[in-house]
Amino acid sequence: MNTSIWDWTVVEDVIPLLLKGFAVTLLATVVGSVIAILLGLLLAMARRAPTRLVRVPVRAFVEFVRSTPLLVQLFTVYVLLPSLSPFVIGASVLGIHYATYMSEVYRAGIDGVPKGQWEAATALSMPRGRTWQAVILPQAVRNVLPALGNYIISMFKDTPFLAVITVHEMVFQAQEYGSDHFRYLEVFTLAAAIFLIASYPTSLLVRRLEKRLGH
């Protein structure tokens, strides 16, 4: 076994593994994002429902989920639903966790649409569904796009938590290789580098979007 501190053969060895894991990481991020973006919107709209019977439980759910740790949520669902695959559980829990965050973002966006827009829609006799679809949401969503983008990047960086329920994402691969070969420096340094390479340019894009939308 090589005894030098940094071993390039380890790097060569582990990169394919990490990239294989990275594909899972990306897939989890994408699936989680889709869930978060859609469910978040649904939760935000439910908090504007005409009846308290909807508003109150939805609010309680949002507060509870966003105030408790993702890691414990993952464990909980993992042991309660053993029949589902770890990936499905991981991506869904990640998505639901972030949906509660995104719902707050959407809510701010919806509240930010001036009251006059609702009134103009009423004055044109537009039905409620059409008002949401054609007038309110396009404006609300546009304003919160950067925030949603930032949460997607956050989600991406939280995907290693999925390793605790044996999802074979990148950090899981790194841990496994590390403990098998007792080479931790290379694997975790590379994992960190890959995260940085992927997330930094993305966050720059989001910041540009922020500027363009005049935030």
């Binding site: 930032n150 990047i153 956050s154």
Partner: peptide
């Protein structure tokens, strides 16, 4: 709510 998202 943290409308900018944590990373911002």
């Amino acid at each position: 709510a943290d409308p900018t998202g944590r990373s911002a």
